[in-house]
Design a protein around this nucleic acid. Sequence first.
DNA 1: ATGGTAGCGCTGCTA
Length: 262
Amino acid sequence: MPFTLATWNINSVRLRAPIVCKLLSEEAPDVLCLQECKSPVDKIPVEDFAALGYTHMIARGQKGYNGVAILSRLPIEEVGSEDFASLGHARHIAGRLENGTVIHNFYVPAGGDVPDREVNEKFGQKLDYLTEMRDWFHSDKPQKSILVGDLNIAPREDDVWSHKQLLKVVSHTPIEVEHLAETRDAGGWVDVTRADIPDGQLYSWWSYRARDWDAADKGRRLDHIWATPDISNAAHSSRILRAARGWDKPSDHAPVFATFDL
DNA sequence: ATGGTAGCGCTGCTA
């Protein structure tokens, strides 16, 4: 049975409940993974989503920052949540669909402004978070699993508007790209979006600070969909809904989609 | 070269 999955950093699920509903209504993914909900779980407007058929939700939340949720039309059972780097943040939740597919939803730390852990503690926490993800997937190899989320790293040269100009900018530095590759390889993960769309510039995030984000188009691909090799061949129809970046009161991220024939 | 915008919750922190 095929199912479509989307991942979206929503930057406040309460403020943006209307565009979450717009996405659910117009695009109708079976599963929607959200990051940066910035809300305690009990204040997420679940009734709005249930009214559209999304009657299942698993989530981790905290006041003001971080927060991850999985909205689903299909039954989903929570199977855990990790606190990598011991930050005490709500940055991960995992669930299992009835067909056995496990979905990991991550919000990796952004890492602050300066790409040097000696002067910027947040950058060190980001690298440590990825290292602990790597070790966790290495010790318990995932199967029939999908990993999505805002990983806050644009790994490829064509995942950013200017590789050269972003080499020292947090999200595209070589050490971050290396850490992300190690995490991916430790779990045997396949980058589904790039397997599906191998060529050309691809972005999922455009800064709020640009005068005209669309015209400037200084984007980065920070949001990812990965799958384990036993199911990665079932993935197709990958896309990034750039139009959502232009919706009313938008998130600075656009949703990323993939369909799995499982 | 710098500053630019946005959300939360209440003053500055985070992105």
